[in-house]
Amino acid sequence: MSIWEYANPARFMRFSRTVLPWVSAAAALLILVGLIWGFFFTPDDFRQGSTVKIIYLHVPSATMAINIWVMMLVTSMIWVVRRHHVSVLAAKAAAPIGATMTLIALATGAIWGQPMWGTYWEWDPRLTAFLILFLFYLGYMALWAAIEDPDVAADLTSILCLVGSVFAVISRYAINFWNQGLHQGASLSLDQEENVSDVFWQPLVLSLVGFGFLFLTLVLLRTRTEIRARRLAALKQRERVS
């Protein structure tokens, strides 16, 4: 079994149909258990009070936001190198999910920041980098939406994804440089290793894995939709021609 077999859309459809119920059930179960456990059965942090509960949404969505971009980069490159149609459709399907995850991470971060840092928005390097990432997602989706020919769109968005990834990494370090240059010692760090103890760790892992499965569910579903949409467009075109 290799990914090349699923370059055949029919085979991908068959595979995803059998897998989808399991993946979606796992996603629902893990997220429910993780969030309920986190929300109802964990103690408050002695410094952050009950706002620590936001971590069960914030950290998984932020993790997914970055990983989804990496996934899009990999699948786009698979398309560029080997013309794997399902792969590039998966990248297209993943982009809105990634944008939503980025938005969730930003929103929960801002809401958490208000009582903790005294401000909704701080031009902290990490926050800024996420905002830029969100803009990249928007650009990527806009380019997909603007081009009619599916193969041209796939090629151009793949190039954009590659160049965008390089610039995203450069931006990340440039932003680090910029903020430290502006005002010394931004005292606000989101370092998880420091302040997460075991009590918070277990539901966090559950919800993290749950978000991973949720992404898998959605990306499979959306890729199926994209394949159907492309078949639909092809059939309609044939009708018009005949």
Binding site: I132, L135, F136, L138, G139, A142, L143, A146, L160, V163, G164, F167, I170, S171, A174, I175, F177, W178
Partner: peptide, 16 residues
């Protein structure tokens, strides 16, 4: 669309 694509890419240049 051009602006939307290019402006995020301008970030590092602008910063430095």
């Amino acid at each position: 669309l051009l602006s939307l694509l290019v402006l995020p890419l301008y970030v590092p240049t602008l910063i430095f």
